[in-house]
Design a protein around this nucleic acid. Structure first.
Length: 411
DNA sequence: TCTGGGGTCCTAGGACCC
DNA sequence: TCTGGGGTCCTAGGACCC
């Protein structure tokens, strides 16, 4: 089964408001969850079904959404709330199977294999699950049922909201093949036009195409989407622990254009604070550091380097990030900056360098103390003096629990 | 006051090795 | 008298997902 929360961010915000005395259900009016255009975060993250009727699309600017519907209600995102709602959902689903895979904050897979003896047929179990989520948690989901994850996911994307669909292999021809090719998982805005240029408009036409022909034009991705169009996919429902994290990144659009190195470095520091904290929380060190620059005309480039000794120290990662930035930046006004670490390894053992007059032990001790303080008293309890009077946030990213009251009762 | 942020995977091309 | 072929590793960039 693939379980997909309908308009997740918007539903969750709406449920929260109803539980806290609001009489207005955001799901019943044209509304969106969106960022603040003043700080240049103005895009639609989720929309209500009435908003969808105005042809408002996820990812479009708030500016253009307001042109389509001037009375649109816009609410800010609250990621800590979404995480709590997501956790409540997982907790409920775990009553029905030990094998749950969280695909994202609002989607997961549930392996129902060998569970019929406990909860009946997949269809009746799905109905029970869907109704319990609605009555106990207050939001609706779509559930897709099939014999593999790809087909279950395709099925949950059929008619919404609050619906259950099956897409077993014998139903592919009837339910999936008539759909436009861009509805297929992994056919995005670059692949769809390529396929159409090849005369392939529906998933069925893709399924019947010659895979060698697809390989010639789309390389391995052509084979992947041909398999998907034929319902061929055999990955297992894996618990989160068996899928270790490959990299950790943090990036931000700055509310003004950055034109000087010093400010850019400060923003990199505020990003690295979060990246390094999360890296240590995963008990990992990183061997590859990269930075990403988006200029005010929306062009972007990146620069990365593999480092000699894997590290998890805030100051070390910051130092590399600044060096990479200085090497890469061509001087254009900067809209957005990002830092990412990857090629992770365990932090339990470290290769020491003969030549590095290393302060690593001291850095680790400082990081450990600061992490403990922030965990206990909140992330803004200690911050760098270089941010004083800078009007920049000393820490960027992460879910700041203390900004919001803990969600009550039902969830 | 137009256009976010978190990921994973793949490919091309160059450096370098034998 | 003229430049092969096999491999690995690294970096940049782009595709896809939510």
């Amino acid at each position: 089964m693939h379980i997909d929360v309908n308009s997740a961010y918007l539903s969750w915000e709406s449920v929260y408001r109803l539980q806290h005395g609001s009489t207005l259900d955001l799901r019943e009016i044209p509304s969106v969850v969106g960022g603040d255009p003043v700080s240049r975060h103005g895009i639609v993250l989720a929309k209500s079904i009435p908003a969808k009727k105005y042809k408002i699309k996820t990812g479009e600017s708030i500016f253009s959404a307001l042109q389509k519907c001037p009375s649109l209600v816009i609410v800010p995102p609250r990621y800590d709330l979404y995480l709590q709602c997501s956790n409540s959902l997982i907790q409920l689903l775990e009553e029905y199977s030990p094998a749950i895979q969280r695909y994202s904050v609002d989607e997961c897979f549930l392996d129902y294999t060998n569970m019929e003896c406990h909860f009946g047929s997949p269809l009746s179990a799905a109905h029970a699950i869907k109704e319990r989520i609605k009555t106990e948690l207050g939001f609706t989901v779509n559930i897709g049922i099939s014999s593999n994850k790809l087909l279950a996911k395709m099925a949950s994307d059929f008619e919404k909201p609050d619906k259950i669909h099956t897409l077993y292999p014998h139903e592919i021809g009837e339910k999936m093949w008539p759909l436009p090719v861009e509805d297929l998982f992994m056919v995005g805005r670059a692949t769809a036009p390529k396929l159409r240029r090849l005369g392939i408009y529906t998933i069925g036409e893709l399924a019947k195409a010659n895979p060698k022909f697809l390989y010639q034009h789309l390389k391995s991705h052509g084979i992947l989407v041909w398999n998907f169009a034929n319902g061929i996919e055999n990955s297992s429902v894996t618990k989160e622990k068996s899928a270790p994290v490959k990299g950790i990144g943090n990036s931000t659009t700055i509310s003004f254009d950055v034109t000087d190195r010093r400010t850019a470095h400060l923003i990199l520091l505020s990003l690295v604070e979060t990246v390094a904290m999360r890296l240590r929380n995963e008990e990992c060190c990183a061997k590859l550091i990269s930075i990403y620059i988006k200029t005010n005309d929306f062009r972007h480039y990146s620069h990365q380097r593999k480092i000699e000794t894997a590290t998890d120290c805030t100051n070390h990662i910051f130092k590399y990030a600044c060096k990479l930035f200085d090497e890469a930046w061509k001087g254009e006004p900067i809209r957005h900056l990002g830092v990412r670490v990857s090629e992770l390894c365990s932090n339990q053992f470290a290769q020491l360098s003969l030549f590095d007059a290393s302060d690593t032990q001291k850095q680790k001790a400082v990081d450990k103390s600061i992490d403990a303080l922030r965990l206990r008293y909140g992330s803004r309890v200690v911050f760098r003096a270089s941010f004083l009077h800078s009007r920049l946030k000393p820490i960027t990213g992460g879910v700041m629990e203390e900004d919001y009251p803990i969600m009550s009762s039902i969830l």
